[in-house]
Amino acid sequence: MRIDHAYLALKALTQREGVKFLQQKGRLFSAFVRPALWLFVFAVGFRGVYGVDAGEPYLQRSVNYEYYILPGLTCMVLLFSGMQSSLAMVYDREMGVMRLLLTAPLPRWYLLTAKLLSGTVLSVIQAYGFLLICLPFAWFTGLRVAFNDPLGWLYVFPALILTGMMLGALGLLLSVHIKQLENFAGTMNFVIFPMFFISPALFPLWYLQESGADLVYWIASVNPFTYGVQLVRYASEGQFYGLGAVVVCACTVGFLALAVVGYDPQRGFVKRGPKPA
């Protein structure tokens, strides 16, 4: 594979993702409104009820709720964006564009990796877009919806990339199995919501332990999204969460490898081809 060819393909895929994203006003709007609603309706309501005894990585004993859930909601942007990539793959398959991609003279593993990278670029831009939207609200309302340390914006960059790649790779893997766009609602119910809610995005996991919900706690402990959220949370406080980085990287490689196998016509889940007429 020529390096310039690989670069051109990556550029083409990224440009296409960007153009389509900007054209889809509803997608653009919902990418920011969804987490913003959570933040300014849900979080503001709860902040009057309690602060969060969040533990690590926070240094102070009690953290404002809206401040606590900011990394979780940023990861929510990545999660929806990753699943959107999955939806886009299924859409491309139904519209026939996928055939064009899979018949390009590049190794299939590279095409899928390039697709993942292009989707991740878009995810990270959306995540920063959400954080930017939070800024004026922080100034005008006094809500703590900006990172303590301005350098947090810089620190979260690699964490957002890693988490975005993991969720994008999961989206690719899911697209192998989602045969029709209509099945995407199932993805929402069985993947996005459980991943998000059974994670430390909205509350610290020790709350679960304390309330005796051991099974839920265990599920949260094996939820890859948990490690992505914590990786971003630690980074936003200028700290490195090693376990999170390892789990997120391992899951990215695992999901992507399974997706490559799934799209391989010789070994994959889609090898059987069309149903007989």
Partner: peptide, 24 residues
């Protein structure tokens, strides 16, 4: 089955394909 990306322009579709085939 039609395989044009209807959201892209004509030239956008052609450039996308050209890049996938390594044409600068």
């Amino acid at each position: 089955q039609p395989t044009l990306d209807l959201d892209l322009t004509v030239i956008g579709n052609l450039r996308f394909h050209a890049n996938l085939h390594g044409l600068n």
